[in-house]
Design a protein around this nucleic acid. Structure first.
Lengths: 219, 219, 219, 219
DNA sequence: CATGAATGAGATTTCATTCAT
DNA sequence: CATGAATGAAATCTCATTCAT
């Protein structure tokens, strides 16, 4: 894949645009799309009010660019890990899940997930983009791994889609809630996200346990 | 009475509040809180701009009322079912989950969940209200049932919080996404919510399977 | 003067209208014309929102009626006192001034003065009425008394208008400020209206002293 | 540059605030605070609706600024005149009074006085500000001069507060009424403010005459 | 006569966007 | 390229007034 074929939003080499997008990301995640003022974005990027308009047509375009820049790139790497993996499917699922958690889930980037959910119906085009670039690859990859696990006798012959859902739901929820309830109800009404990584590991274990062929515990 | 003599307005003091809340629910779910204009709510409720203010102090109060009326009330009933149940814990979990799905999850009401997630940081007071009225009771109830299942030897001694999370996450996610991605990407990028109830049942089975003591299938 | 020739606003014998006007007076004096809501007037008069409109065309008409009812009547009585007075001009001025102070100046009615000043340019018609019914008679009467005092050697031959002004200004100011600054800065920035009556007496003495023929102190 | 190419707006950062305050002053004096619309102020200042908000937080702040800019500043100068004065107290009082009249009393600025009286109870904070910045200094200064006049045998030993009141009341009243009745009843019901300066001089003379020690005419 | 639910014009304020400098 | 003053559409909320009951 050459430089020339990289998508438009990755080609900007100037620092300005990405400073603006970084500022926008933080503010969008913190306040939501509507409540974030262009002037705040500009100020957070150390430029003045008019400058963002030199790089982006309007606030919507910034929103799109923020999501495009921050998420699309990560799937090639995950796919590479999947290709090179030689151990059990369960191990691979755990490895990928934790990698995603550490690089996205427990960072500001997780807020994008909340953002997209919140604004999905206001930005259909973007939502489709996100579905194609993030959701689709995730589901496909996990489905593929499950299939392999079933094929090699590691997992029971469960319905792929439902199992994928059961596996990913805790992760997605943890990411989403950390940026909604987590900000407001820190001790989460009896449900703590303080130790989310550990917590997530346990939920994953549980589901993997349900997946595994009885008597053949791969965990 | 001809069209020309139709009264400019009709007095319906008792009906108004719920008409307004119904209108608000649909619009909030569709567009989000900020993007929903008071005048739209009014028009959707067949009244004029000022009328909602006769019944609610402002838009936020309408938001709160929407949640109170539609969700808070349901938990007493769920608790009653729990109290009267005499079968297995797994059965109870399934029964409650499907009841919730049928009455909330697969209806417009599920959109409230998305709404709260989306607006959480903008309305901390409301988020706390939702956490106390909806999330807390759910988590407590599921936790209690799990505990009982472990106590009577039906389930393995898993960590309660993580298991609760694993059980509820698919439900919450299904509700949330139906009102974000579901509206925009109907065929869900390879992940269909078309048959959500069936789908949910399978995910639940899977997790319950992971919970159960090997050799003792209670489903 | 027969009943039939009484001005329109005094002919209403029902209690309702005057209850409404009393309520309106208090509220207008307290909050000003614009800030007083029709509903507040209604509530203060123990009727409902629509009732004032059965008696008055709109808020402006209530404002007019409030002023007409409360002030016009008092001048006949003052004129009668003037006619029957046989002592010195200075004594008469003092007597009238205190009578006005005790019946109007130190009561809620004084607030009308502030009201008219505040709304004068918004209600020219009313202002003209007030000028004709209240200001004009006052000035004429005081001028007449001064003239008499000069004629009988009690006062120096001062310009009538300026002397009238000097005599009445402290009274008017006391009335006005009691309903503006007096409400907000009770201790009046070094200038106390607590003992306004005493205070007023002294200011009047001072001006009368300036009026009197030297060597002939009538006070 | 033809009419057609006139810029939609002009940048005048430094000039704007005072243009806005000037426009606001005229409108406030003419219509009162509540009745003056922000859009009117903007239009009178040749800007659009939003521009005043670039310089002032809201209408109240404009009100405050109008008073600060136009009145607060003048007292230092008056105090300086007082300090440098070496003649009689009566002369000083006349000089100050006429200076104030010429610079404030007979100009649009006098309308501020009416304004504050009218809106006092609606803006307690502002009223306190005005009391501290305008009323208090005036009263103190006049009181000080009276005291000096009494000390050096020029005036009789009258009560300071009442004498201050008698001296200032005609001035304040002239300022106030010029912007209420004066606008509506130009010939003032037999009481003309046409020659206010002359008129005021006479009233002042009268009061000073009442103040002076008999046989010792300092005027 | 009286009520009070409903109307709808109107006012304040916000903020994405423009464009002269 | 960058600035930031200015624009003006839009949104919330108020309240005088109306009129079916």
């Amino acid at each position: 894949m050459t430089e020339a074929t990289l998508p438009r939003w990755q080609r900007k080499k100037d620092a300005r645009p990405s400073e603006i997008l970084d500022a926008a990301l933080s503010l969008f995640v913190e306040k939501g799309f509507r409540a974030t003022k262009m002037e705040d974005i500009a100020r957070a990027a150390n430029v003045t009010k008019g400058t963002p308009y030199l790089y982006f047509q309007n606030k919507e375009e910034i929103f799109k660019a923020v999501i495009q820049v921050n998420l699309s790139s990560r799937f090639a790497e995950l796919a590479e890990i999947e290709r090179q993996h030689s151990g059990s499917a369960a191990e691979l699922l755990q490895q990928l899940m934790f990698k995603w958690w550490d690089e996205v889930g427990c960072t500001e980037l997780a807020g994008i997930c909340k953002l997209v959910i919140a604004e999905a119906t206001n930005f259909p085009e973007l939502t489709q983009f996100y579905a194609a670039e993030v959701i689709q690859p995730s589901l496909t990859m996990v489905g593929r791994i499950l299939q392999r696990g079933i094929a090699n006798g590691e997992f029971r012959a469960v319905p792929i889609e439902s199992a994928t859902d059961a596996l990913l739901a805790p992760l997605v929820l943890a990411m989403t809630w950390a940026h909604s309830f987590g900000k407001v109800v820190p001790e989460g009404a009896g449900y703590s996200y303080k130790n989310s990584r550990h917590h997530l590991a346990e939920a994953l274990d549980l589901v993997l346990n349900g997946l595994c062929v009885p008597g053949k515990n791969n965990n």
